[in-house]
């Protein structure tokens, strides 16, 4: 009897493997194999010139030496991180404030659902369309300049996209608009998860809202803040659509808005230097891999 039951379990449990087949096969073909061949290509001289393919021939760590010694990868990493920070710092501050308001039962905001829906909307908008919109709105003959001149704020149109700070600020601002709603909702969910008796006790003790926020909410929110910061950084390293469209693939002025993925993309589809693109990919893989491990470690620490 007992053996029969055990036999049954084994009979059923082979279905665990069967149901995993689609995921595993597709993952191996479309993720693992491409990753392995990307790493492989990074050690080879392999490019296309005038429709002729050169290589692949082994050339050691040449590509890695090249991207680090000519400073390109450091420069584009710097651009990426600067624009990410310019967007992320206001994003986390605004999200903390809005999250605290939405989750504060004493404040009892009306139409909170409407506000949440509005701030989340930009996250679902096609980033390339949003960037094209800003490209058009902030053109020197575009409506933003026309409004600013009409309001006598500017004497003459300002060329936003020919100015380093303005271009970076526009990219960061778009990232901010697209992501602060998402962050607000995550932080709010974290704040609602805090034991309400802590807030009640603080209220009885006569703590002000500011004290409650800094002494109770913020310390208890730390794991989620770390999670939000690292996932946002991983997302930031993938920044592409917005600067690509806003600067018409150039990253100009002075390549100030050229990100790591724009660099990778130009090596794959414009220069067709696959070996070099492989090396850039591997650097990105190591970076995001390390950050993912950090997230994994932070979120699983409790158990």
């Amino acid at each position: 009897m007992k053996e029969a039951k055990k036999g049954n379990i084994v009979k059923y449990n082979k279905w665990g493997y069967i149901f995993l087949i689609p995921f595993v096969v597709v993952y191996l073909v479309f993720q693992v194999y491409p990753l392995v061949s990307t790493i492989f290509f990074s050690f080879f001289e392999y490019y296309e010139e005038n429709l002729a393919v050169v290589g692949p021939t082994w050339n050691n760590f040449e590509h890695y030496i090249q991207i680090f010694s000519d400073g390109s990868i450091v420069k584009y990493a710097e651009n990426t991180i600067i624009m990410w920070l310019m967007g992320f710092i206001p994003q986390i501050l605004v999200s903390l404030l809005l999250g605290a308001w939405f989750s504060d039962t004493r404040l009892h905001l009306k139409a909170a659902g409407f506000f949440k829906a509005v701030i989340y909307l930009p996250n679902l908008i096609m980033a390339s369309a949003f960037a094209m919109l800003f490209f058009t709105l902030f053109a020197s003959s575009g409506p933003i300049n026309s409004i600013l001149v009409d309001l006598k704020i500017l004497d003459q149109p300002f060329r936003f996209l020919e100015n380093i700070l303005a271009t970076r600020t526009l990219v960061a601002f778009m990232n901010f608009i697209m992501w602060f709603g998402n962050t607000t909702i995550l932080l709010m969910a974290g704040m609602m998860g805090i034991d309400p008796s802590l807030f009640e006790a603080a209220e009885v003790d006569g703590a002000t809202s500011t004290q409650v926020f800094f002494r109770i909410t913020l310390p208890l929110l730390r794991p989620i803040l770390v999670y939000v910061a690292i996932t946002s950084l991983v997302g930031g390293l993938q920044m592409f659509d917005v600067p690509e469209i806003l600067t018409e693939s150039t990253g100009d002025p002075n390549e100030c808005a050229k990100t790591l993925i724009m660099y990778l993309n130009s090596q794959i589809s414009v220069s067709k230097n696959y070996g070099l693109a492989g090396a850039i990919s591997v650097v990105l893989f190591v970076l995001t891999g390390a950050l993912s491990m950090l997230v994994f470690w932070v979120t699983n620490k409790k158990e």
Partner: peptide
């Protein structure tokens, strides 16, 4: 699966496109 969750598709794009 949890560990690979955050690996961006861009880092495998080169191998993917060649394939």
């Amino acid at each position: 699966i949890l560990m690979i969750m955050m690996i961006p598709t861009q880092v495998t794009a080169l191998g993917f496109i060649r394939m």
